[in-house]
């Protein structure tokens, strides 16, 4: 473990908690893409299947349980409890256009063809594009609630910090995982224009609105 990965995991945890609190406190999931949350739940489910038979550390197991529980809790809030506030008119991204290429790519490029490894690879590729329905929804509505923009910033910052972690691990323990690094870079690039808008607008106290 290194400080960059720890900060990344904390950002990730903060993002998930901020989203849960936003929906719970405002009793509304307006502006939130349920489809992205479905993809995130799928990412954690496919990546953490080893939760029950591979023990890395208490921290690792606890965080996996938290991520799994919170992602399904978020799905419950969106699709069951506050279903009436779910903006399905704007959450129209075709996620099959993300799932199918990720399945194909994880069969073409993977470290190993064991079921657990294939699921891990699939989850890495899927996580890289899981935010697209949410970014698509923000572009369709042309704006996002400030709290939603904080959620997106924390989520984007988590993987950006993981890139620093990978650089650090490369130089300190000559460890590198090309699949995770390439997917992580793509994932972070997808947030680039959002980061620009967040820093130039939200941090100056303005609303998060896309230029018309």
């Amino acid at each position: 473990m290194n400080i960059f990965r720890l900060l990344g995991d904390i950002c990730h945890l903060v993002a998930i908690i901020v989203l849960l609190l936003k929906i719970w406190k405002t009793r509304s999931c307006a502006g939130i893409s349920g489809k992205s949350q479905i993809l995130f739940a799928l990412v954690y489910t496919t990546r953490y299947v080893d939760l029950f038979f591979t023990y890395v550390s208490l921290y690792n197991s606890v965080m996996k349980v938290i991520f799994l529980a919170s992602s399904y809790a978020t799905l419950y809030l969106i699709y069951v409890k506050f279903k009436a506030t779910y903006d399905f008119n704007h959450d129209t991204f075709r996620i099959e256009f993300l799932l199918i290429p990720c399945v194909i790519l994880s069969l073409l490029i993977t470290h190993d063809y064991s079921p657990v490894e294939l699921l891990w690879t699939f989850s890495i590729y899927l996580e890289a594009v899981a935010i697209l329905p949410q970014l698509f929804m923000v572009s369709k509505t042309g704006e996002a609630e400030t709290i939603t923009s904080h959620y997106l910033f924390a989520l984007g910052a988590y993987r950006a910090l993981y890139i620093v972690n990978w650089i650090y691990r490369y130089y300190t323990e000559s460890f590198i995982d090309g699949i995770a690094v390439v997917a992580g870079i793509i994932q972070t690039i997808l947030y680039a224009d959002f980061f620009y808008l967040y820093i130039t607008k939200v941090l100056k106290g303005k609303d998060f609105k896309l230029p018309a």
């Binding site: 990965r5 890395v56 550390s57 590198i176």
Partner: peptide
């Protein structure tokens, strides 16, 4: 540089 078989990252 090696990619560890067991993934120790979240």
């Amino acid at each position: 540089a090696i990619a560890k078989a067991s993934h120790d990252e979240l």
